[in-house]
Design a binder for these strands. Structure first.
Lengths: 192, 192
DNA sequence: CTCGGTTGTCTAGCAGTGCTAGAATCAATC
DNA sequence: GATTGATTCTAGCACTGCTAGACAACCGAG
């Protein structure tokens, strides 16, 4: 038994190595540079090994996305718990969100830009994704305002943040005024 | 002279054909399906012909993006001019924007999602892009509110719309409640 | 301690991609 | 009608994601 256990452990280790390496490579040189060959070389195995863990490149992106979602949920909750008052919490939330997107562009792309084969806003949505959304909702529900569904409000607020994050990073928006845009967004969208 | 003129005209025609075909193919089967080989086959020339018009695939995407920007500007102005009152104009603007994105997903991607090698929010930004932004600003400036820079307000509003458009299309947001999200956005972000 | 069989890994290859050098062909001019 | 110059094509490069089948390493039984 212990032999099989060791093998399973080693396999799990290697799977983590693949995901971590893919993420690292993507952050360093962009997702285009994450080819199965390069990835295989970095983990010091041949390409087919990747396919014994994941069905394809898409699934590797999905794995990075899930890791990122869990991380982001932690970052968001850390930021909001340090703030007092609904309004301050929302500001902290927005900043933390954009901060995470800026610091981890490749992971952010894996989550929301690329196709990682993950289901969103559905029954079969993976737990980390649901939880990241929940982290947003916890603070945003406080400022949704009367008569506005908190879920709907969260979706809308999130979309606005997502737009800022992607347009800024794609150089569609000048990065200097990000702070002021966030303030405007928080001020206007918050009800109370 | 007339011979050269005819040749120039034919060349320009062919260039338009390339852009139109790329766009059509992208809308039908997605940008992944727009390969230089398939594109060449559809215009009934060999691949190298594409490179005598454009420096590469990126520039073809850029050409589609410019075409789309001009179209979108027209669509936005048409929608706003039919509405009376600042608030109604902004609502019409938002709906027209999302409508264009939904009806022309591939063109929308070329503009804001893919790399078309275009400069944004800069001096050397192509005219159609500046004009599309201007079309947004014209209506949004009316509801920016006192003490808020209309340009900054437009950027923020645009980002929110962009977030809704992309997240909805990428199935990150359920499409049913789009209308309600737009209403929420317009109601809260508009000042007056 | 050796052997058979399973498990795991690798080599080699497929069909596709964007892009290009150089051959071939076409057409306008003399 | 021949020549010359522009235009277009054929063929190929280095790369992509992915996979079949050969090969090697290892475990458990005798």
């Amino acid at each position: 038994m212990s032999v099989q256990e060791r093998k399973q452990r080693e396999r799990a280790d290697r799977e983590r190595l693949i995901v971590a390496t893919a993420r690292e490579l993507a952050e360093q040189q962009g997702w285009d540079a994450v080819t199965t060959r390069r990835l295989a070389e970095r983990i010091e195995y041949s390409q087919p090994v990747l396919y014994s863990h994941f069905s394809g490149k898409r699934e590797i992106i999905g794995a990075v996305a899930l890791e990122g979602a869990a991380e982001m949920a932690v970052a968001l909750r850390a930021a909001t718990s340090a703030a007092t008052g609904p309004r301050a919490r929302v500001t902290a939330l927005a900043r933390a969100y954009l901060d995470y997107a800026e610091r981890n562009p490749a992971v952010y792309d894996a989550m929301f830009q690329l196709d990682g084969g993950l289901a969103f806003a559905q029954e079969e949505t993976p737990e980390p994704l649901k939880d990241a959304f929940a982290a947003l909702l916890e603070s945003l529900a406080e400022v949704a305002g009367a008569g506005v569904d908190p879920g709907l409000f969260t979706e809308t607020f999130w979309a606005a943040l997502h737009g800022l994050a992607t347009l800024t990073r794609a150089r569609r928006l000048p990065p200097e005024d990000t702070e002021r845009r966030v303030d405007l967004l928080v001020t206007r969208l918050s009800a109370a």
